[in-house]
Design a protein around this nucleic acid. Structure first.
Lengths: 354, 354
DNA sequence: AAACCTTACGAAAACGTTTGCGTGTGGAAA
DNA sequence: TTTCCACACGCAAACGTTTTCGTAAGGTTT
């Protein structure tokens, strides 16, 4: 459905440049530039005239020209696997916060989990649009193990900060959570409230965070002398269609708790359990990972491991800006910041009172 | 927690420019430029040499220089009120899709619902970083009714496309849904399954979409000859703390349905109703607005009005790019695209069989 | 009157491109 | 031998800044 409006000829007030001001005031471009910067080289009289004129015509220096001249853009490129994703957007929120404070602009691109798009975005931003990168790599990139675009960018002197889905082999700043430790404490929580038969819903192994969380789960079990049981482990292949996998996995299985490595698996498990006539948390306790919208608002609300996405973004941005503005000493060392996770207790793991 | 890695001196392979290639090959800059473009002016021999060299050194033209020269950036600026928001990110997804197809870059900024930040972001992007804007205005801007930054941008010849939270007074392209109509069909659906005492959970009036949806609700009631009842209308002030408001509103109220103007209100209503001992959908039917994560995964899953965010983004991007690349005729007319909403039936309004 | 110093400004280069036009070289035609 | 024309390339301007350096005008010292 469309409506079309006729248009009254708008009078364009094209952007005014130094050159135009100079011509108008019959002085040179350099005089205008200096006057606007309050240089003592220029007489007070001229300064005032120029500034008044500039204000009147709403002069704003052209960023592109400045970028070209200064050889820096004051822009941070952020590339994430998915834009429609609560965790990543909270990270972006953190990045923006710091960036804006420090006078940086933020360009966000989504790789859509595609290796090719990640490369394209990176090259595009690297060729003049951004001074440095904050990046969480695409699934495909993790699978393919091809990091030439990232290495190339770094070798051109542009700092890169990896977060969440990082790449161990790459020598650069990183911001992560201790996924294994978070998973371990999630599992510990289930053990501590008396659960013994704990299933895990995780991802296939090439997703680094999935694998790490699985490891944490196993570690917790070992510490409790509970033998690893393949039957309690489901590695979900197709996230978009996880319900079917979870359903057949859970069918008739004798468990008293589920640890899900993300929100979606957690709530899907609850739904499936409901349909199978089990109650959460009374029959089966559920714990998730990532403290997003679903966890907060679901019924029952989800006990979960918070990754503190905003903090991650803040730390990542700080690391990057330090690199961008720092001297040699800062430029030459690489940090890995590990953000502490925390257990957020809600109703999906209500303590059983027996 | 931090780890510091010592760093083996990286050998920087600084970005190579036309000038460097020219010097290396002992030809002029223009020859290099033309050779790379396969100009017939240049001998085949030279062309091949230049291209080989450029490839070897991974030459990529500098975007900034190109932008300066061409006076366009091939970049779309998107400004949204919140980045951590499912609907807005789906819109961005749509924008990116079209933009990438057409060779445009996308810069996303969040105004955080602040008027000042909206102005700053806009001015920053307008001074050279973007060719045009896709914008959903901040709450504060709607309250303040100060649109000078948008008008100014437009008068400088940069096209602006408004979406979702638009401003009627502004003459520019717009992409919206018919909020009132969507709300009306939501209400109609409730009426059609036999509900008679329908409450609405909406926002305060200065939020344009909230007001429009309230109007739609009222229109639907009128069509059924149901008198407007103030007692059934709750205008929520503090979204972050809506639970308390909803709780006291719903307490002891005799209703058989709730229409919530967003997901959060809807699921909060369900939670409150649960606590008050009522069942959804058996005692009270619920319908929401915006088809997001919560609606899809909640138990019961939510019947809702889908706004088709991705489509909105696609249309907005197309409108903008048409303006950017179009000739006069296209530049001089403004369209308002109305995206059709649709009713997504799920379990929160299961048909009562009586 | 010559030498000097301020003051106030302009010229030009630089950032990395693209492109219209000018030009030197060589060979072919006259 | 002269004239002409392709051919292959370089020059320079332009985009909008910033900044270094040069310099004219005018006044102040000797």
């Amino acid at each position: 459905m469309e409506k079309v409006n006729a248009n009254n000829k708008k009078q364009m007030k094209q952007k005014v440049t130094l050159k135009q001001i100079a011509k108008e005031l019959d002085v040179s471009i350099s005089t205008v530039s200096k006057a606007l910067k309050d240089s003592v080289e220029i007489s007070l009289d001229t300064r005032q005239k120029v500034k008044a004129f500039a204000k009147l015509y709403n002069y704003k220096p052209n960023n592109i020209a400045l970028s070209l001249k200064n050889r820096k853009t004051k822009t941070i490129g952020v590339i994430i696997p998915e834009i429609v994703h609560h965790f990543f957007t909270t990270v972006i929120g953190g990045v923006e916060k710091v960036a804006n404070e420090k006078g940086y602009n933020v360009i966000i691109c989504s790789s859509n989990n595609s290796f090719d798009k990640e490369v394209i975005n990176m090259e595009m931003l690297a060729s003049g649009s951004a001074d440095g990168f904050i990046l969480s790599v695409a699934k495909e990139t993790q699978l393919k193990k091809d990091y030439h675009h990232i290495e190339e960018t770094m070798s051109q002197g542009m700092p890169v900060v990896l977060f969440d889905r990082i790449i161990d082999e790459l020598v650069c700043d990183k911001v992560i959570i201790d996924d294994a430790k978070g998973a371990q404490s999630a599992t510990n929580h289930l053990l501590s409230i008396g659960c013994k038969k704990i299933a895990i819903l995780t991802t296939v192994d090439y997703i680094s965070v999935g694998k790490l969380r699985t490891n944490g789960y196993l570690r917790a079990l070992r510490a409790y002398d509970i033998p690893e049981n393949e039957e309690y482990i489901l590695k979900i292949e197709d996230i978009d269609n996880c319900e079917a996998e979870i359903e057949s996995f859970l069918k008739g299985k004798d468990i008293d708790a589920v640890f899900a490595v993300n929100e979606l698996f957690a709530v899907t498990a609850i739904r499936v359990l409901h349909e199978q006539g089990k109650r959460v948390p009374d029959d089966v306790a559920i714990i998730g990972f990532t403290d997003g919208i679903l966890s907060k608002h679901f019924i029952p609300s989800l006990t979960t491991i918070s990754q503190h996405g905003e903090d991650m973004g803040i730390r990542a941005a700080k690391l990057l800006i330090d690199k961008l503005e720092g001297d040699e000493s800062v430029t030459e060392e690489y940090r890995t910041v590990i953000i502490d996770t925390s257990l957020v207790q809600r109703k999906s793991t209500k303590k059983t009172k027996d």
